[in-house]
Amino acid sequence: MTKLPIKISAKNVDVFYGAAHAIKSVDVEIADKMVTSFIGPSGCGKSTFLRCINRMNDTIDVCRVTGDIMIDMEDIYDRRVDPVQLRAKVGMVFQKPNPFPKSIYDNVAYGPKIHGMARNKLELDEIVEKSLRRAALWDEAKDRLQEPGTGLSGGQQQRLCIARAVATEPEVLLMDEPCSALDPIATAQIEQLIDELRSSYCVVIVTHSMAQASRVSDRTAFFHLGELVEYGYTSHIFTNPSDKRTESYITGRIG
């Protein structure tokens, strides 16, 4: 259904938390330079699946992932793949803004520093400025780079987290309900930002808000009880869903 290059492709992915079967044989192909959103009721597995794409689930002891997830045709669960390197390539923004207890500058410089991306202070300054501009935070933050990141407002903090993720030059940007802790104005800013990011990255966003999914995304995947029920063009999913469960969810009858 797509002509754009496939960035992420998942085949037969199952996830278990101990005995609980959280994701049931999900197949999905996510295109590059596009925003794909995952929607579904709470506990449907959309966040769990998102966390498989950068292997954040590895940090949970009882979590087990089977099946194949490929990024650029490379199996990210291959034994030769270092999850640490993978996460530099696949950035993540979390539900609650979680800036580090450091200055705004150091928050953004954190990733580039640990990956040795800058040879000197000047290059690092450039990366920080570029990332803050990308996250539409530069104008607000440029005069207070040395102040703690935790002193920013909630929406600014979330944009700082996006800047932090962008600074490591990822190819994929995963966002786990990035606006659920923000007010409508900050949400609108983040959504505008997502719209701008689509030209450079493959963006995958998990959201509880169907309105948000329809506003920001090109493709939408609907998860229910660990299954991928329906996946396709956002306009198609919201106007003419082919599955009964999708229709019930988007019309507000379930979830």
């Binding site: 950068n54 940090t59 640490v84 979390f94 979680n98 800036p99 990733g111 640990i114 990956h115 993720a165």
Partner: peptide, 14 residues
């Protein structure tokens, strides 16, 4: 908070 660790690990820190 675990969110601090996740944020750092998510950026590719060991």
């Amino acid at each position: 908070p675990q969110a601090m660790r996740d944020g750092s690990l998510g950026l590719g820190a060991t």
